[in-house]
Amino acid sequence: MEEIKEQIGHMPRIGEPAPAFEAVTTHGKLKLEDFKGSWLILFSHPADFTPVCTTEFIAFTEIHPELQKRGVELLGLSVDSVSSHIAWARNVEEKTKVKIPFPIIADLNKEVSLAYGMIHPGQSKTETVRCVFIIDPNQIIRTILYYPLTTGRNMDEILRIIDALQTTDKNAVATPANWRPGDMVVVPPPNTQEMAEERLKQGYECTDWYLCKKKL
């Protein structure tokens, strides 16, 4: 356990550059920099041929067209071999008619898993937990989600986060709790007393000077 804890070292954080990697995948050798200019969802699953992971891969495939519309690529990862990934993807297609369209990293030496803090020894010393890293076109980590081995991820939330991040970037606003595209957005809070007073005259829907919303 101590040895694994030492290997984990630095955990990536939101706002930091995503750790660079070159990895063997089901689509050949890929580098992080190959995704420059696109949004990237890098996600890990515990193991191939396991039930929750299979439901997640089907669900990720189902949202893949929506992600493509938003300029987002998907990249899976587990500590399994390429042969295992290929066999599992073929099995999923045979049994469910769902063809997995995105690459999956075969991280047998755990190089990427450890760089991204995907191994949580309290859950498993050998398998990655269910991580989601949302990386922007400049390769900065914008969101990190961790789910335990027993809980499958929520695709609606992943799409919602992408929509929220892209809306935030485009309009310099923030998004309130449970925000959905089309809902009002939060205007950034004022930094000075003058701005706070002006804020109340700008036609926003304000609860008070620090909480104002507007339609986009």
Partner: peptide, 12 residues
């Protein structure tokens, strides 16, 4: 083809 596939393919 997706751009990431093209970039890695061009290396090969």
């Amino acid at each position: 083809l997706p751009l990431f596939r093209v970039r890695s393919g061009l290396r090969e």
